[in-house]
């Protein structure tokens, strides 16, 4: 359902140019759990942003559910971000002046869900990440790990078929990192497609399919047998 075909992302800075993505082709099927691994600056986030319809490739085609994303209007892209994808950012990206519940409600708000139902669904998502009791707190009143869980709750509040997580464990200690990973695994087992960026090999080792990126190119794509 996610299909990247020969994607280039080139940042030109005067005379020098940076090839953040240098001919990437990738296919992720429904229900897969894929880890994207690579050193810092290798192009992982760039790749994820394109998959998340937040960024546009310099060249190449991206098909989501068979539709060519480059042909969609801003409004249609917004709908895809809203209904098809749940994005978990490395830096949480919560809105500081909204409380936890309001943050989690945001994707539902843009989906047009009515206030009462919206609140229920957001509370359910918060319960799943174990933060229902912090619903009225503000992001600044939570720890980093809790904020990350809120951002996960926000990503899954609308039950999107795909979760994209850009180093969700990066800022967490290994114990909470594991908890987050377990949670994503559970979501995957319920049928959600998960794409996870990490540079932690311990984490990558637990995931069935690992795609390695180096200097904007995919250098390996391995799927373990069994689990």
């Amino acid at each position: 359902m996610i299909e990247l075909k020969d994607i280039y992302k080139i940042y030109s800075d005067g005379d020098s140019e940076i090839r953040a993505l240098d001919g990437v082709s990738l296919f992720v099927d429904k229900g897969e759990f894929v880890a994207i691994v690579g050193s810092s600056g290798s192009g992982k986030s760039t790749c994820m942003n394109i998959v998340g319809c937040l960024d546009i490739p310099t060249s190449g085609k991206y098909f989501l559910n068979g539709n060519d994303v480059s042909e969609l209007s801003e409004k249609e892209l917004a709908h895809i971000r809203n209904r098809e994808l749940g994005f978990v950012f490395q830096q949480y990206n919560l809105i500081p002046k909204l409380n936890v519940l309001e943050n989690v409600e945001l994707p539902l708000l843009y989906k047009g869900v009515k206030a009462k139902e919206r609140k229920q669904m957001a509370m359910m998502a918060l319960e799943r990440v174990g933060l229902a009791d912090r619903a009225n707190k503000f992001p600044s009143q939570l720890s980093g790990g809790q904020q990350q869980r809120v951002s996960i709750a926000r990503a899954l509040a609308g039950n999107p078929p795909v979760i994209l997580a850009d180093e969700p464990t990066g800022a967490l200690d290994s114990k909470t990192g594991k908890e987050v990973l377990e949670f994503l695994k559970q979501l995957n087992s319920e049928g959600t497609t998960v794409v996870l960026i990490t540079h932690d090999n311990d984490i990558a080792a637990q995931i069935k399919r690992v795609v390695r990126i180096h200097d904007g190119k995919i250098v390996s794509d391995e799927t373990k047998e069994g689990n």
Binding site: K75, A78, H79, R81, R83, N93, L94, L106, P107
Partner: peptide, 16 residues
């Protein structure tokens, strides 16, 4: 700007 980016990433349309 950042808030706008977050809202857009969550599905806010230009109209929103």
């Amino acid at each position: 700007t950042r808030e706008i980016g977050i809202r857009k990433s969550l599905g806010a349309t230009p109209w929103d």
